[in-house]
Amino acid sequence: MKTNKITLVKLSLIAVAAVFVSCDNKGDSMDAASLDFSGTYIQQDQMARPAINTVFIASGAPKDAFNSAIPTKMGASYQGVFQSRLMALNANYTTNALGQTAAQLTGLLATDVLGVDKTKKTTFFDGTNILTGRALADDVIDVELLLIFGGPTGGSNAGLTSDHVDKNDKDFTAGFPYLASAW
């Protein structure tokens, strides 16, 4: 116990010294110049649109494979997989509220990038704008459920087209950093 305490004190003194060194009033650029950012970094996870890997890719190794794929390779490799999944989820799928066939919807989703518009409101879907970004309050799950289960009018499978969780459990802030404080 005593040795632990001594070690702890020593360590914390070293830590304090280290902090003083790194705070040495030279500013960030000088700080950063002494830091090692070298090396090669390899892709582990990839994500754009919400829930795509989780919904359309089988468990286990295929999910890792999708995460290490780059968008230009995804369409050719995954559109067919996604379409099989879609038809398994909703065997009666014909088109959705956007008029997309199964091939069109899965062709869009298989290349996992998020379209963002720099000239107007950014939203996953707000009734007018479609895929112009993803804002914090967007009910993205309801949009995806509607497109998968809702049929051409959005009126099919009424029990499956909304999870009836319409907003986050905390309010977002109007300004940066926008996300609410941690629980």
Binding site: Q44, V55, L89
Partner: peptide
């Protein structure tokens, strides 16, 4: 048709989506 999808468990949005 949902049951026939073996191992399909949603961990949305992308939370804990893959073993690695």
């Amino acid at each position: 048709s949902l049951i026939t999808i073996t191992g399909l468990v949603f961990m949305a949005a992308d939370h804990a989506d893959a073993p690695a």
